[in-house]
Design a protein around this nucleic acid. Structure first.
Length: 464
RNA sequence: GUCCCCAUCGUCUAGAGGCCUAGGACACCUCCCUUUCACGGAGGCGACCGGGGUUCGAAUCCCCGUGGGGACGCCA
Protein backbone atom coordinates (compact mmCIF):
# COMPACT_ATOMS: atom_id res chain seq x y z
CA UNK A 1 0.00 0.00 0.00
CA UNK A 2 1.26 3.47 -0.85
CA UNK A 3 2.27 5.38 2.22
CA UNK A 4 0.13 8.39 3.03
CA UNK A 5 0.97 10.45 6.08
CA UNK A 6 -0.40 13.72 7.30
CA UNK A 7 0.34 16.65 9.53
CA UNK A 8 -2.79 18.06 11.09
CA UNK A 9 -2.19 21.17 13.18
CA UNK A 10 -4.95 23.29 14.58
CA UNK A 11 -4.43 26.93 13.71
CA UNK A 12 -4.62 28.38 17.18
CA UNK A 13 -1.02 29.56 17.28
CA UNK A 14 2.32 29.36 15.53
CA UNK A 15 4.16 26.22 14.51
CA UNK A 16 6.25 25.37 17.53
CA UNK A 17 9.17 23.06 17.86
CA UNK A 18 7.14 20.01 18.84
CA UNK A 19 4.76 20.43 15.92
CA UNK A 20 7.69 20.96 13.62
CA UNK A 21 9.23 17.68 14.67
CA UNK A 22 5.96 15.84 14.20
CA UNK A 23 5.67 17.36 10.74
CA UNK A 24 9.29 16.48 9.99
CA UNK A 25 8.84 12.85 10.92
CA UNK A 26 5.60 12.49 8.98
CA UNK A 27 7.19 14.18 6.00
CA UNK A 28 10.32 12.04 6.16
CA UNK A 29 8.32 8.86 6.43
CA UNK A 30 6.35 9.69 3.30
CA UNK A 31 9.51 10.71 1.48
CA UNK A 32 11.33 7.55 2.47
CA UNK A 33 8.62 5.32 1.06
CA UNK A 34 7.82 7.46 -1.93
CA UNK A 35 4.40 8.18 -0.50
CA UNK A 36 2.38 11.34 -0.02
CA UNK A 37 2.50 13.85 2.77
CA UNK A 38 -0.75 15.65 3.40
CA UNK A 39 -1.32 18.92 5.22
CA UNK A 40 -4.63 19.29 6.95
CA UNK A 41 -5.73 22.26 8.98
CA UNK A 42 -7.95 21.31 11.90
CA UNK A 43 -9.86 24.52 12.31
CA UNK A 44 -13.13 23.33 13.78
CA UNK A 45 -12.51 25.32 16.94
CA UNK A 46 -13.88 28.44 15.36
CA UNK A 47 -13.39 30.54 18.45
CA UNK A 48 -9.64 29.96 18.61
CA UNK A 49 -8.67 29.38 14.99
CA UNK A 50 -7.34 32.34 13.06
CA UNK A 51 -6.16 32.91 9.49
CA UNK A 52 -3.00 34.44 10.93
CA UNK A 53 -2.23 31.17 12.66
CA UNK A 54 -2.81 29.26 9.44
CA UNK A 55 -0.34 31.55 7.73
CA UNK A 56 2.15 31.17 10.58
CA UNK A 57 2.02 27.40 10.25
CA UNK A 58 2.46 27.56 6.50
CA UNK A 59 5.38 29.96 6.95
CA UNK A 60 7.03 27.63 9.41
CA UNK A 61 6.62 24.62 7.15
CA UNK A 62 7.98 26.56 4.21
CA UNK A 63 10.95 27.89 6.13
CA UNK A 64 11.86 24.35 7.08
CA UNK A 65 11.23 23.13 3.56
CA UNK A 66 8.64 20.58 4.62
CA UNK A 67 6.70 20.52 1.40
CA UNK A 68 3.35 18.77 1.27
CA UNK A 69 1.91 16.83 -1.63
CA UNK A 70 -1.77 17.42 -0.92
CA UNK A 71 -3.68 20.14 0.84
CA UNK A 72 -3.83 22.17 2.85
CA UNK A 73 -7.28 20.79 3.51
CA UNK A 74 -9.45 22.76 5.87
CA UNK A 75 -11.88 20.90 8.07
CA UNK A 76 -14.30 23.80 8.09
CA UNK A 77 -14.71 23.24 4.37
CA UNK A 78 -15.65 19.62 4.90
CA UNK A 79 -18.68 20.18 7.11
CA UNK A 80 -21.12 18.64 4.69
CA UNK A 81 -19.14 15.44 4.64
CA UNK A 82 -18.97 15.21 8.42
CA UNK A 83 -22.69 15.81 8.74
CA UNK A 84 -23.34 13.12 6.18
CA UNK A 85 -21.29 10.60 8.14
CA UNK A 86 -22.94 11.60 11.40
CA UNK A 87 -26.34 11.03 9.83
CA UNK A 88 -25.18 7.66 8.58
CA UNK A 89 -24.13 6.63 12.10
CA UNK A 90 -27.42 7.91 13.46
CA UNK A 91 -29.36 5.96 10.82
CA UNK A 92 -27.44 2.81 11.57
CA UNK A 93 -28.00 3.15 15.28
CA UNK A 94 -24.31 3.63 15.94
CA UNK A 95 -24.84 7.09 17.33
CA UNK A 96 -27.61 8.74 19.26
CA UNK A 97 -28.91 12.06 20.54
CA UNK A 98 -28.12 13.05 24.09
CA UNK A 99 -30.09 15.77 25.87
CA UNK A 100 -27.90 16.23 28.90
CA UNK A 101 -27.16 19.81 29.81
CA UNK A 102 -23.63 20.94 30.53
CA UNK A 103 -24.59 21.40 34.16
CA UNK A 104 -25.83 17.85 34.34
CA UNK A 105 -22.55 16.58 32.86
CA UNK A 106 -20.47 18.71 35.18
CA UNK A 107 -22.32 17.32 38.15
CA UNK A 108 -21.81 13.80 36.88
CA UNK A 109 -18.09 14.37 36.47
CA UNK A 110 -17.69 15.92 39.84
CA UNK A 111 -19.50 13.13 41.58
CA UNK A 112 -17.40 10.49 39.84
CA UNK A 113 -14.18 12.28 40.70
CA UNK A 114 -15.07 12.37 44.37
CA UNK A 115 -15.82 8.67 44.17
CA UNK A 116 -12.31 8.15 42.85
CA UNK A 117 -13.35 6.78 39.52
CA UNK A 118 -12.60 7.98 36.05
CA UNK A 119 -15.13 10.56 34.93
CA UNK A 120 -17.25 9.15 32.13
CA UNK A 121 -20.59 9.82 30.56
CA UNK A 122 -22.95 7.31 32.14
CA UNK A 123 -24.90 6.58 28.98
CA UNK A 124 -28.22 7.82 30.27
CA UNK A 125 -29.45 8.68 26.76
CA UNK A 126 -27.94 5.64 25.11
CA UNK A 127 -30.71 3.58 23.59
CA UNK A 128 -30.74 -0.10 24.44
CA UNK A 129 -33.17 -2.82 23.37
CA UNK A 130 -35.12 -3.02 26.63
CA UNK A 131 -34.25 0.37 28.04
CA UNK A 132 -36.89 3.07 28.42
CA UNK A 133 -35.49 6.56 27.92
CA UNK A 134 -36.81 9.56 29.79
CA UNK A 135 -38.87 11.98 27.77
CA UNK A 136 -36.94 14.41 25.65
CA UNK A 137 -36.74 17.74 27.42
CA UNK A 138 -38.26 20.67 25.61
CA UNK A 139 -36.06 23.28 23.98
CA UNK A 140 -32.74 21.58 24.58
CA UNK A 141 -30.83 21.01 21.36
CA UNK A 142 -29.19 17.61 21.65
CA UNK A 143 -25.61 16.61 20.97
CA UNK A 144 -24.81 13.44 19.10
CA UNK A 145 -22.85 10.74 20.87
CA UNK A 146 -21.03 7.81 19.39
CA UNK A 147 -22.11 4.43 20.70
CA UNK A 148 -18.83 3.09 21.93
CA UNK A 149 -18.55 -0.67 22.53
CA UNK A 150 -19.11 -1.41 26.20
CA UNK A 151 -17.00 -4.48 26.55
CA UNK A 152 -13.79 -5.85 25.21
CA UNK A 153 -10.67 -3.87 24.57
CA UNK A 154 -9.19 -1.79 21.80
CA UNK A 155 -5.60 -2.60 21.02
CA UNK A 156 -3.07 -1.54 18.47
CA UNK A 157 0.62 -1.98 17.88
CA UNK A 158 1.96 1.47 18.14
CA UNK A 159 4.89 1.94 15.82
CA UNK A 160 6.75 3.82 18.52
CA UNK A 161 5.41 2.60 21.82
CA UNK A 162 4.60 -0.98 21.01
CA UNK A 163 1.45 -2.83 21.93
CA UNK A 164 -1.16 -0.71 23.67
CA UNK A 165 -4.46 -2.03 24.88
CA UNK A 166 -7.27 -0.09 26.48
CA UNK A 167 -10.44 -1.57 27.86
CA UNK A 168 -13.65 -0.24 26.38
CA UNK A 169 -14.89 0.16 29.93
CA UNK A 170 -12.46 3.03 30.25
CA UNK A 171 -14.12 4.79 27.36
CA UNK A 172 -17.47 6.48 27.16
CA UNK A 173 -19.81 7.62 24.45
CA UNK A 174 -18.02 10.67 23.19
CA UNK A 175 -19.79 13.61 21.62
CA UNK A 176 -19.29 13.68 17.87
CA UNK A 177 -21.56 16.61 17.12
CA UNK A 178 -22.16 19.63 19.30
CA UNK A 179 -25.58 21.02 20.07
CA UNK A 180 -25.14 23.43 17.18
CA UNK A 181 -24.53 20.51 14.86
CA UNK A 182 -20.82 21.05 14.28
CA UNK A 183 -18.66 17.95 14.52
CA UNK A 184 -15.97 17.60 17.14
CA UNK A 185 -12.27 16.92 16.79
CA UNK A 186 -12.11 13.18 17.34
CA UNK A 187 -14.81 12.62 14.82
CA UNK A 188 -13.37 14.88 12.14
CA UNK A 189 -10.02 13.20 12.47
CA UNK A 190 -11.61 9.83 11.91
CA UNK A 191 -13.52 10.89 8.82
CA UNK A 192 -10.50 12.71 7.42
CA UNK A 193 -8.01 9.95 8.02
CA UNK A 194 -10.47 7.60 6.41
CA UNK A 195 -11.33 9.79 3.41
CA UNK A 196 -7.73 10.77 2.85
CA UNK A 197 -6.55 7.20 2.98
CA UNK A 198 -3.99 7.85 5.67
CA UNK A 199 -1.84 4.78 6.24
CA UNK A 200 0.33 5.98 9.11
CA UNK A 201 -0.79 8.48 11.68
CA UNK A 202 2.31 10.06 13.18
CA UNK A 203 1.42 12.50 15.94
CA UNK A 204 2.22 13.61 19.45
CA UNK A 205 1.67 11.15 22.27
CA UNK A 206 -0.88 13.41 23.88
CA UNK A 207 -3.18 11.68 21.38
CA UNK A 208 -2.61 8.19 22.71
CA UNK A 209 -5.81 8.44 24.69
CA UNK A 210 -7.78 9.48 21.63
CA UNK A 211 -6.61 6.56 19.59
CA UNK A 212 -8.89 3.84 21.01
CA UNK A 213 -11.92 6.07 20.48
CA UNK A 214 -10.86 6.78 16.94
CA UNK A 215 -10.26 3.12 16.22
CA UNK A 216 -13.72 2.27 17.51
CA UNK A 217 -15.28 4.86 15.22
CA UNK A 218 -13.21 3.74 12.28
CA UNK A 219 -14.42 0.21 12.90
CA UNK A 220 -18.03 1.35 13.19
CA UNK A 221 -17.68 3.02 9.81
CA UNK A 222 -16.08 -0.03 8.29
CA UNK A 223 -13.01 2.03 7.54
CA UNK A 224 -9.44 0.87 7.36
CA UNK A 225 -7.56 1.44 10.59
CA UNK A 226 -4.21 3.12 9.92
CA UNK A 227 -1.05 2.36 11.81
CA UNK A 228 -0.26 4.76 14.62
CA UNK A 229 3.04 6.18 15.77
CA UNK A 230 2.91 8.32 18.87
CA UNK A 231 5.87 10.60 19.37
CA UNK A 232 6.82 11.64 22.84
CA UNK A 233 6.94 15.29 23.62
CA UNK A 234 9.79 17.75 23.59
CA UNK A 235 10.63 19.43 26.88
CA UNK A 236 12.21 22.84 27.23
CA UNK A 237 15.87 23.49 27.90
CA UNK A 238 15.05 23.43 31.59
CA UNK A 239 13.28 20.07 31.44
CA UNK A 240 9.90 21.68 31.85
CA UNK A 241 6.97 21.16 29.58
CA UNK A 242 6.74 23.65 26.76
CA UNK A 243 3.63 25.76 26.77
CA UNK A 244 2.52 29.12 25.49
CA UNK A 245 3.28 30.50 28.90
CA UNK A 246 6.60 28.75 29.20
CA UNK A 247 9.26 28.47 26.56
CA UNK A 248 7.22 27.55 23.50
CA UNK A 249 8.28 29.65 20.58
CA UNK A 250 7.53 29.66 16.90
CA UNK A 251 10.01 27.92 14.63
CA UNK A 252 10.23 31.30 12.91
CA UNK A 253 11.80 32.60 16.07
CA UNK A 254 14.77 30.41 15.23
CA UNK A 255 15.03 32.25 11.96
CA UNK A 256 14.96 35.55 13.81
CA UNK A 257 17.58 34.25 16.19
CA UNK A 258 19.94 33.41 13.38
CA UNK A 259 19.55 29.67 12.99
CA UNK A 260 19.67 27.98 9.62
CA UNK A 261 16.74 25.72 8.77
CA UNK A 262 19.23 22.94 8.01
CA UNK A 263 20.50 23.13 11.56
CA UNK A 264 17.04 23.16 13.12
CA UNK A 265 15.97 20.24 10.95
CA UNK A 266 19.09 18.23 11.74
CA UNK A 267 18.70 18.98 15.42
CA UNK A 268 15.03 18.03 15.47
CA UNK A 269 15.72 14.84 13.56
CA UNK A 270 18.18 13.74 16.22
CA UNK A 271 15.85 14.63 19.02
CA UNK A 272 14.13 11.36 19.70
CA UNK A 273 15.48 9.56 16.68
CA UNK A 274 18.89 8.15 15.95
CA UNK A 275 20.85 6.38 13.31
CA UNK A 276 23.78 4.83 15.14
CA UNK A 277 26.37 7.44 15.94
CA UNK A 278 25.43 9.80 13.15
CA UNK A 279 24.97 13.37 14.28
CA UNK A 280 25.27 15.50 11.19
CA UNK A 281 23.37 14.57 8.08
CA UNK A 282 21.46 16.13 5.24
CA UNK A 283 17.72 15.83 4.79
CA UNK A 284 18.40 13.53 1.83
CA UNK A 285 20.24 11.16 4.13
CA UNK A 286 17.61 11.56 6.79
CA UNK A 287 14.83 10.60 4.41
CA UNK A 288 16.76 7.49 3.44
CA UNK A 289 17.63 6.49 6.97
CA UNK A 290 14.45 7.46 8.74
CA UNK A 291 12.32 4.76 10.23
CA UNK A 292 9.94 4.45 13.12
CA UNK A 293 11.97 1.71 14.83
CA UNK A 294 14.61 4.03 16.13
CA UNK A 295 12.41 6.60 17.77
CA UNK A 296 12.74 6.94 21.51
CA UNK A 297 9.57 6.53 23.42
CA UNK A 298 10.58 8.85 26.23
CA UNK A 299 10.35 12.61 26.26
CA UNK A 300 13.37 14.55 25.08
CA UNK A 301 14.75 17.73 26.54
CA UNK A 302 15.68 20.49 24.14
CA UNK A 303 19.32 21.50 24.26
CA UNK A 304 20.23 24.86 22.81
CA UNK A 305 23.97 24.21 23.15
CA UNK A 306 23.74 21.31 20.77
CA UNK A 307 21.58 23.27 18.35
CA UNK A 308 24.23 25.98 18.45
CA UNK A 309 26.92 23.47 17.65
CA UNK A 310 24.98 22.21 14.66
CA UNK A 311 24.19 25.71 13.56
CA UNK A 312 27.87 26.66 13.71
CA UNK A 313 28.58 23.64 11.58
CA UNK A 314 26.03 24.64 8.96
CA UNK A 315 27.28 28.21 8.95
CA UNK A 316 30.75 26.92 8.15
CA UNK A 317 29.27 24.79 5.37
CA UNK A 318 26.93 27.38 3.94
CA UNK A 319 27.71 28.86 0.59
CA UNK A 320 28.99 32.37 0.67
CA UNK A 321 26.21 33.88 -1.41
CA UNK A 322 23.62 32.61 1.05
CA UNK A 323 25.49 33.92 4.06
CA UNK A 324 26.09 37.25 2.38
CA UNK A 325 22.46 37.77 1.61
CA UNK A 326 21.35 36.68 5.03
CA UNK A 327 23.93 38.68 6.96
CA UNK A 328 23.37 41.82 4.95
CA UNK A 329 19.66 41.57 5.74
CA UNK A 330 20.47 41.27 9.41
CA UNK A 331 22.84 44.22 9.24
CA UNK A 332 20.25 46.23 7.35
CA UNK A 333 17.84 45.57 10.17
CA UNK A 334 20.43 47.29 12.38
CA UNK A 335 20.52 50.24 10.03
CA UNK A 336 23.82 49.29 8.41
CA UNK A 337 23.24 49.37 4.72
CA UNK A 338 26.04 50.41 2.44
CA UNK A 339 28.25 47.37 2.67
CA UNK A 340 30.62 48.17 -0.16
CA UNK A 341 33.67 49.14 1.89
CA UNK A 342 35.03 46.72 2.93
CA UNK A 343 33.46 44.02 0.83
CA UNK A 344 31.13 41.96 2.99
CA UNK A 345 32.28 38.77 1.37
CA UNK A 346 35.77 39.00 2.84
CA UNK A 347 34.41 40.05 6.20
CA UNK A 348 32.01 37.13 6.36
CA UNK A 349 34.77 34.79 5.29
CA UNK A 350 36.83 36.01 8.22
CA UNK A 351 34.00 35.49 10.69
CA UNK A 352 32.01 32.47 9.53
CA UNK A 353 34.14 30.03 11.50
CA UNK A 354 33.56 31.87 14.73
CA UNK A 355 29.81 32.30 14.87
CA UNK A 356 27.16 30.06 16.34
CA UNK A 357 24.33 32.00 14.79
CA UNK A 358 23.81 34.37 11.91
CA UNK A 359 23.04 37.07 14.43
CA UNK A 360 26.40 36.53 16.08
CA UNK A 361 27.95 36.67 12.66
CA UNK A 362 26.20 39.93 11.85
CA UNK A 363 27.00 41.58 15.13
CA UNK A 364 30.58 40.32 15.07
CA UNK A 365 31.10 41.94 11.74
CA UNK A 366 29.47 45.22 12.58
CA UNK A 367 32.58 47.15 13.57
CA UNK A 368 33.76 47.01 9.98
CA UNK A 369 30.93 49.31 9.01
CA UNK A 370 30.42 51.40 12.05
CA UNK A 371 32.75 52.77 14.71
CA UNK A 372 32.82 50.17 17.43
CA UNK A 373 31.59 50.63 20.94
CA UNK A 374 34.69 50.85 23.07
CA UNK A 375 35.36 48.59 26.00
CA UNK A 376 36.77 51.03 28.55
CA UNK A 377 38.36 48.33 30.66
CA UNK A 378 40.17 46.93 27.66
CA UNK A 379 41.43 50.39 26.79
CA UNK A 380 42.77 50.87 30.27
CA UNK A 381 44.43 47.49 30.32
CA UNK A 382 46.01 47.38 26.89
CA UNK A 383 46.51 50.93 25.69
CA UNK A 384 49.21 51.92 28.11
CA UNK A 385 51.46 54.93 28.02
CA UNK A 386 54.47 52.67 27.34
CA UNK A 387 52.91 51.18 24.25
CA UNK A 388 51.54 54.35 22.71
CA UNK A 389 54.87 55.52 21.26
CA UNK A 390 55.34 52.10 19.69
CA UNK A 391 51.92 52.25 18.15
CA UNK A 392 52.53 55.76 16.96
CA UNK A 393 55.71 54.72 15.19
CA UNK A 394 53.90 51.72 13.76
CA UNK A 395 51.13 53.94 12.47
CA UNK A 396 53.72 55.94 10.59
CA UNK A 397 54.96 52.79 8.96
CA UNK A 398 51.47 51.58 8.17
CA UNK A 399 50.91 54.73 6.17
CA UNK A 400 53.73 53.72 3.86
CA UNK A 401 53.46 50.00 3.29
CA UNK A 402 51.60 47.95 0.77
CA UNK A 403 48.17 47.25 2.30
CA UNK A 404 48.13 43.46 2.58
CA UNK A 405 47.81 41.13 5.54
CA UNK A 406 51.39 39.99 5.06
CA UNK A 407 52.85 43.46 4.89
CA UNK A 408 50.81 44.60 7.88
CA UNK A 409 51.92 41.53 9.78
CA UNK A 410 55.54 42.30 8.95
CA UNK A 411 55.14 45.88 10.14
CA UNK A 412 53.67 44.76 13.45
CA UNK A 413 56.36 42.14 13.77
CA UNK A 414 58.97 44.82 13.23
CA UNK A 415 57.46 46.99 15.93
CA UNK A 416 57.45 44.01 18.25
CA UNK A 417 61.04 42.88 17.73
CA UNK A 418 62.65 46.28 17.49
CA UNK A 419 61.17 47.13 20.88
CA UNK A 420 61.94 43.77 22.46
CA UNK A 421 58.25 42.99 23.01
CA UNK A 422 55.95 40.03 22.63
CA UNK A 423 53.47 40.06 19.75
CA UNK A 424 50.29 40.42 21.83
CA UNK A 425 51.78 43.46 23.54
CA UNK A 426 51.31 45.33 20.26
CA UNK A 427 48.46 43.33 18.75
CA UNK A 428 46.13 43.79 21.68
CA UNK A 429 46.15 47.58 21.80
CA UNK A 430 45.65 47.61 18.05
CA UNK A 431 42.74 45.26 18.44
CA UNK A 432 41.13 47.46 21.05
CA UNK A 433 41.62 50.59 18.98
CA UNK A 434 40.28 49.04 15.83
CA UNK A 435 37.57 46.68 17.01
CA UNK A 436 36.73 48.22 20.34
CA UNK A 437 37.30 44.99 22.22
CA UNK A 438 39.73 42.20 22.93
CA UNK A 439 38.29 39.44 20.75
CA UNK A 440 38.69 39.35 17.02
CA UNK A 441 40.32 37.39 14.26
CA UNK A 442 44.00 38.05 13.54
CA UNK A 443 44.35 41.78 13.78
CA UNK A 444 46.50 42.05 10.65
CA UNK A 445 43.75 40.35 8.62
CA UNK A 446 41.17 42.65 10.17
CA UNK A 447 43.22 45.72 9.32
CA UNK A 448 43.79 44.54 5.79
CA UNK A 449 40.06 44.24 5.26
CA UNK A 450 39.13 47.42 7.06
CA UNK A 451 41.33 49.46 4.76
CA UNK A 452 44.22 51.77 5.45
CA UNK A 453 42.32 54.99 5.93
CA UNK A 454 39.80 53.67 8.40
CA UNK A 455 42.45 51.68 10.26
CA UNK A 456 44.73 54.66 10.67
CA UNK A 457 41.83 56.88 11.60
CA UNK A 458 40.85 54.53 14.41
CA UNK A 459 44.45 54.27 15.63
CA UNK A 460 44.99 58.02 15.50
CA UNK A 461 42.03 58.57 17.77
CA UNK A 462 44.27 57.22 20.51
CA UNK A 463 47.65 58.72 19.73
CA UNK A 464 46.93 62.43 19.56
C1' G B 1 -8.59 9.82 41.94
C1' U B 2 -8.82 6.46 37.41
C1' C B 3 -6.49 4.89 32.96
C1' C B 4 -2.31 5.12 29.59
C1' C B 5 2.84 6.01 28.62
C1' C B 6 7.99 6.58 30.02
C1' A B 7 12.86 5.57 32.84
C1' U B 8 21.24 4.53 30.14
C1' C B 9 26.47 10.10 31.55
C1' G B 10 24.16 17.21 33.21
C1' U B 11 21.63 16.87 27.97
C1' C B 12 20.56 14.08 23.12
C1' U B 13 21.37 9.11 22.44
C1' A B 14 23.88 3.72 20.93
C1' G B 15 22.33 -0.72 22.99
C1' A B 16 16.94 -6.09 20.36
C1' G B 17 20.70 -11.84 26.59
C1' G B 18 27.08 -12.84 26.02
C1' C B 19 30.56 -8.10 21.16
C1' C B 20 29.49 -3.64 27.60
C1' U B 21 35.63 -2.79 31.51
C1' A B 22 28.29 0.38 28.61
C1' G B 23 29.87 3.40 22.69
C1' G B 24 29.07 8.36 20.23
C1' A B 25 27.59 13.64 20.31
C1' C B 26 26.71 18.46 22.99
C1' A B 27 28.30 20.75 27.45
C1' C B 28 32.33 20.79 31.02
C1' C B 29 37.84 20.17 32.36
C1' U B 30 43.13 19.61 30.70
C1' C B 31 46.71 19.95 27.02
C1' C B 32 48.24 21.21 21.87
C1' C B 33 47.75 24.96 17.97
C1' U B 34 47.92 30.42 18.59
C1' U B 35 48.26 37.25 18.08
C1' U B 36 43.31 37.69 21.93
C1' C B 37 38.72 35.04 21.40
C1' A B 38 36.89 31.37 18.52
C1' C B 39 37.87 27.27 15.05
C1' G B 40 40.63 22.79 14.81
C1' G B 41 43.42 18.52 17.16
C1' A B 42 44.49 15.12 21.47
C1' G B 43 43.00 13.47 26.16
C1' G B 44 39.78 13.50 30.63
C1' C B 45 35.36 13.65 33.87
C1' G B 46 30.69 11.37 33.55
C1' A B 47 25.13 6.92 33.29
C1' C B 48 22.20 1.50 33.04
C1' C B 49 16.13 4.64 39.15
C1' G B 50 15.47 0.68 43.34
C1' G B 51 14.14 -4.35 44.66
C1' G B 52 12.93 -9.09 43.35
C1' G B 53 12.76 -12.89 39.70
C1' U B 54 13.91 -15.80 34.72
C1' U B 55 18.81 -17.43 32.79
C1' C B 56 25.11 -20.49 32.84
C1' G B 57 24.82 -15.13 31.78
C1' A B 58 20.42 -9.07 32.01
C1' A B 59 21.29 -2.20 30.54
C1' U B 60 18.54 -5.62 27.53
C1' C B 61 13.04 -10.34 29.37
C1' C B 62 9.07 -10.59 33.64
C1' C B 63 6.94 -8.67 38.33
C1' C B 64 6.66 -5.05 42.22
C1' G B 65 8.02 -0.40 43.91
C1' U B 66 9.69 4.68 43.08
C1' G B 67 9.97 8.82 40.11
C1' G B 68 8.36 11.61 35.78
C1' G B 69 4.80 12.65 31.93
C1' G B 70 0.09 12.41 29.50
C1' A B 71 -5.22 11.82 29.23
C1' C B 72 -9.89 11.98 31.52
C1' G B 73 -14.12 18.94 27.51
C1' C B 74 -20.25 20.33 23.40
C1' C B 75 -10.53 22.13 22.93
C1' A B 76 -7.64 20.24 19.38
Amino acid sequence: MTVRTRFAPSPTGFLHIGGARTALFSWAYARKYGGSFILRIEDTDVARSTPEAVQAILDGMNWLGLNWDEGPFYQMQRMERYKEVIQKLLDEGKAYYCYCSKEELDAMREQQMTQGIKPRYDGRWRPEPVKVLTAKPEGIPPVVRFKNPQSGAVAWDDLVKGHISISNEELDDLIIARADGTPTYNFCVVVDDWDMGITQVIRGDDHVNNTPRQINMLNALGANVPQYAHLSMILGDDGQKLSKRHGAVSVMQYDDDGYLPEAVLNYLARLGWSHGDDEIFSMEQFCQWFDLDHITSSAAQFNTDKLNWLNAHYIKQADNAYLLKNVSQRLAAQGIENLTEPALTGVVELYRERANTLNELASGVMYFYRKPAVDALAVEKHITSEILPVIKALAGQLAEIEWTTEAIHAAIEHAVTSNGLKFPKVAMPLRVMITGGTHSPSIDAVMALLGRDETLSRIKAYIQ
